[in-house]
């Protein structure tokens, strides 16, 4: 049975860039503990010497010529999606 603490939830939220309110802590703690307790039964499985599978296509190193591809999407199209723009730059609040 995996038990997650308040501190663990806060650490995970920081890792995931999520701001968590104090009122959400209790339910997150119990949900995450329950989910991890369910999936941890996999630890009983003997996987000694087994290679992991990260993808199932059996394709390897698919590459293409290093040439600019035609695209219908322009810089202006992409800048239009940004919440605030100044000239050709995306504006954000101060970093530090």
């Amino acid at each position: 049975m995996t038990q997650i603490s308040d501190k663990d939830v806060r650490k995970l939220a920081t890792l995931a860039c999520l701001q968590i309110e104090n009122s959400q802590l209790a339910s997150l703690k119990s949900d995450l503990s329950n989910i991890l307790s369910y999936v941890e039964k996999l630890s009983q499985l003997d996987t000694n010497g087994v290679e992991p599978t990260y993808q199932v296509t059996e394709l390897r190193n698919v590459s293409r010529a290093d040439e600019v591809q035609d695209t219908t999407v322009t810089r202006d199209d992409l800048l239009k999606l940004a919440p605030t723009v100044e000239g050709n730059s995306i504006r954000i609040p101060k970093v530090l």
């Binding site: 999936v39 941890e40 630890s43 996987t47 290679e51 992991p52 599978t53 990260y54 199932v56």
Partner: peptide
Amino acid sequence: DAYYLQAQKARTLLI
């Protein structure tokens, strides 16, 4: 290792 890698190894056994 305990979770992610173990799951990907188990995936090999399933396949």
